[in-house]
Nucleic acid binder design. Structure first.
Length: 299
DNA sequence: AGTTGTCAAGCTAGT
DNA sequence: ACTAGCTTGACAACT
């Protein structure tokens, strides 16, 4: 099992997803910002290797406005060398990579322009991972999308749109169960229509489910991943006590995490910790995992 | 220097 | 028909 965290490292002193306002867009500004972001990305990944954290989510803001019409610059060409170098480092250290475009990416939208912008955004994510020369285990995770008054039709539209995607995108795209609209069993329907792998989000599953236990749900999700996709990806977070259901915890609850590990014993997956203090919880989780594994080994 | 409103993009539920 | 909430960090405008 590889353990990781998304996008931001709070201790390292740089950000790999720094952006700017659309109003202040310029080619110079773009190049400056991407340069800073990639430099920082490299530092974060090096930090992660030193600390045994071998799963990382790269920020969607690495190249600000990459899919916006305002951006006509060939950033792939400009940063090709640096992207390939980061990619080589990632491969050499067997690091698992994911990306997670946000809520605006809706390939099952009713409006054609929303679909087009979504595809452009996905293509940007895909282009970056491709330029890094990462294999098909590096994934881009999205949600199924909106319901638009009819869930079956919404799923059907997802299936149809997926069929029309290019091969480069298809090999990276995965869907994640969400907390309000599309449960794991809804995602499995999408899988049956497309073959797309399902990311299992444990907190979302606690918010919205069809009675499956966490272990059952995780095993069902695991079956949607083929060898070329790599191990199942799992998003894990504790609930922040006393807040709205679904709010991510400030720091990992090691007791809860320990329970989770015991619960999922024998399953193979990579774990993304969606927890606010990021790498701190990552290190704590890794320590807990090692203790757990050595105890299991002695049994 | 510190604080706070606002940011490309959208959905859903509630008024 | 309209808006708040979702979740979130950080930019940028303003004290």
């Amino acid at each position: 099992m590889r353990i990781g965290y998304p996008c931001i490292n709070r201790g390292i002193g740089c950000t790999a997803g720094s952006t700017f306002r659309l109003a202040s867009y310029s080619e110079t500004r773009l190049i400056q910002t991407v340069q800073k972001n990639l430099d920082c990305l490299k530092k974060i990944i090096e930090y992660n290797v030193e600390n045994g954290l071998l799963f990382f989510r790269i920020s969607s803001d690495t190249v600000p406005f990459a899919s916006h019409p305002v951006c006509k610059y060939d950033w792939i060409g400009h940063f090709s060398g640096q992207l390939k170098e980061i990619g080589r480092y990632i491969r050499d250290h067997d690091i698992r990579i994911s990306m997670h475009p946000d809520q605006f990416v809706l390939i099952n939208a009713l409006k054609e322009d929303i679909v087009e912008r979504s595809l452009a955004e996905l293509q940007y994510h895909c282009n970056m991972l491709d330029e890094m020369e990462l294999d098909s285990t590096a994934k881009i995770q999205i949600h199924v999308g909106g319901v638009y008054g009819n869930k079956d039709q919404a799923i059907e539209r997802f299936v149809e749109r997926y069929a029309s995607l290019n091969q480069a995108l298809k090999r990276r795209l995965v869907v994640e169960n969400d907390d309000r609209l599309f449960s794991l069993s809804d995602c499995l329907k999408v899988h049956h229509g497309t073959g797309i792998p399902i990311v299992f989000d444990s907190l979302h599953h606690a918010c919205l489910n069809n009675g499956e236990t966490d272990r059952e749900a995780l095993m069902q999700a695991a079956q949607t991943w083929r060898r070329v996709d790599g191990p199942l990806m799992v998003d894990y977070s504790s609930q922040q006590p006393g807040h709205n259901v679904g709010k991510h915890a400030q720091s990992i609850d090691t007791t809860d995490f320990r329970r989770f590990l015991e619960n999922m014993k024998g399953c193979d997956f990579d774990l993304m910790l969606e927890i606010k203090d990021k790498e701190k919880s990552g290190v704590k989780a890794l320590t807990e995992l090692k203790v757990f594994q050595s105890e299991e080994y002695r049994k």
